[in-house]
Design a protein around this nucleic acid. Structure first.
Length: 424
RNA sequence: GGAGAGAUGGCAGAGUGGUCGAAUGCGGCGGUCUUGAAAACCGUUGAUCUUCACGGGUCCGGGGGUUCGAAUCCCUCUCUCUCCGCCA
């Protein structure tokens, strides 16, 4: 959520920057400025009348204490009109306040200057790539067939239990999941992140805080009986840990990591994109989250990207890092790097991580602040997060890229965690 | 699920209609003393909106109401605790 004052003071800047996200903000910004002005006028008036009322009330109290009943009662009559005025002003203030808010939440975050212009994934910029593309024989199999051949993942059983997109992992398939989760958590811990085990359901306030609500209402599973949402990512609970919190500047950056199952309705997805592990309704992910001082949030973004890069390197996967263009970025992000790994049998790049700086956009909603060391005043912090990493597509690429006639080779770094180096 | 109690500043905790944004203690910050530290003592210490500023407004779990005036009374929701029931 953009700051109202900022919008009011920099309307042209907001409109200009949002063009890069292919968002025409002119109308909304204009309305916000008009309403904001009106809102302030009403508040000024209301404050004035309330001040008068407070003064009068004190006088009446004084008169009663002095036993001047008649004068007190006379003064009471004068308050009637003030009360009405206050009620009216408060009502119109509330109405306008709500209108402003509704417009305010429609504005996406401003893209950073680094963000390339563009509309579609084709316009994303590859900033780096690494690893060797494997050359597989003609008998190469896609991961869903490998998963069946080696009895690692049963998609049909998942359909029986729940539905499409809820796979059942078995044997070495299940162990590989556990190994990856442990490996990722260990790496995060080594990089200074505190491990968190968060709830998998959150309330509405949390959904709003990180920007899933009201924007992506339909993408989350909603438990209506208790009005709770299944988390689409650990980002939601882990970032909301700091909702309504003022952090001491010396405690920045705050670095948290969490493994969680993630639940996504993925309404609107179809076809070959959802084959096998490519797109699931439930999947496992280790997330890293940082709360940063605004002065160095971009340095921290680079640090997080480097951390994720180290993971795909250690797993020996060919990867590329993309800087997302304005049109492909999320609503809440200011700058996002996507990681893709190459899935050699499908012969396509799969997104396995998204690392973003949200600047103050989430923190504004969360009221997440730090106390400035000089002024001692609370200032809105910056939040960042990234997948480190999401499992399913990593598994897809590992299975496909490492297939050999003898079986599937397990990356060395995972062997201590899963206890085998070959799936056969 | 049933019965009862409760929700106040970073924490603990007072406050049952006016002078209460709120006593007191702890914690934090600054200082005195000290070679330094501790102890002791003194001072200071919530957030937010608005205004160039002075100032003014709002906030005692959320929402609504009564009243000239609400932390305090009423209604409602949420949450927490205790006991009972159920249970991984």
């Amino acid at each position: 959520m953009l700051n109202l004052r900022f919008i009011q003071e920099n309307p042209e800047l907001v409109i200009e920057k949002l063009k890069k996200k292919n968002f025409d903000a002119a109308g909304i910004v204009g309305q916000i400025i008009d309403l904001y002005k009106k809102k302030n006028e009403i508040q000024a008036k209301a404050d004035q009348v309330k001040a008068e009322m407070n003064k009068l009330s004190k006088e009446i109290g004084q008169l009663f204490r002095e036993g001047k009943q008649a004068e007190a009662n006379a003064a009471k009559e004068r308050t009637t009109e003030l009360k009405d005025t206050i009620k009216q002003l408060d009502d119109s203030f509330a109405t306008i306040d709500e209108q402003v808010f509704e417009l305010q939440v429609q504005l996406p975050n401003l893209p950073a200057d680094l963000v390339p212009a563009g509309r579609t994934p084709e316009d994303n910029v590859t900033v780096k790539s690494g690893g060797e593309l494997p050359t597989l024989g003609a008998d190469k199999l896609p991961h869903w067939e490998l998963a069946g051949k080696y009895n690692l993942i049963d998609f049909e059983l998942g359909v029986k239990l729940t539905g499409a997109g809820f796979p059942v992992y078995k044997g070495k398939g299940a162990k590989l999941q556990r190994a990856l989760i442990n490996f990722f958590l260990n790496e995060a811990e080594k990089a200074g992140y505190l491990e968190i085990q968060p709830p998998l359901m959150v309330n509405e306030d949390s959904g709003f805080g990180t920007g899933q609500l009201p924007d992506k209402e339909g993408q989350m599973y909603h438990v209506t009986e208790d009005n709770l949402y299944l988390i689409p990512t650990a980002e939601v609970p882990v970032t909301n840990l700091y909702r309504d919190v003022i952090v001491e500047a010396k405690d920045l950056p705050v670095k948290n990591t969490a493994y969680s199952a993630c639940f996504r309705r993925e309404a609107g997805s179809y076809g070959k994109d959802v084959r096998g592990l490519n797109r699931l309704h439930q999947f496992d992910k280790v997330e890293i989250v940082q709360i940063a001082h605004p002065d160095n949030s971009y340095a921290i973004l680079e640090e997080m990207v480097a951390h994720v890069e180290s993971l795909v390197q250690k797993l020996g996967l060919p990867y590329r890092i993309l800087r997302l263009c304005g049109g492909d970025m999320s609503f809440t992000s200011a700058l996002t790097y996507d990681f893709e790994v190459y899935s050699a049998a499908q012969e396509k790049w799969l997104e396995v991580s998204s690392v973003s700086n949200f600047e103050s956009f989430q923190a504004n909603r969360l009221k997440l602040r730090y106390r400035d060391e000089q002024t001692k005043k609370p200032v809105i912090a910056h939040t960042l997060n990234g997948s480190a990493l999401a499992l399913p597509r990593i598994v897809a690429a590992l299975l496909e890229n490492n297939q050999t006639p003898e079986g599937i080779r397990v990356p060395e770094v995972l062997v201590p965690f899963c206890g085998f180096d070959l799936i056969n």
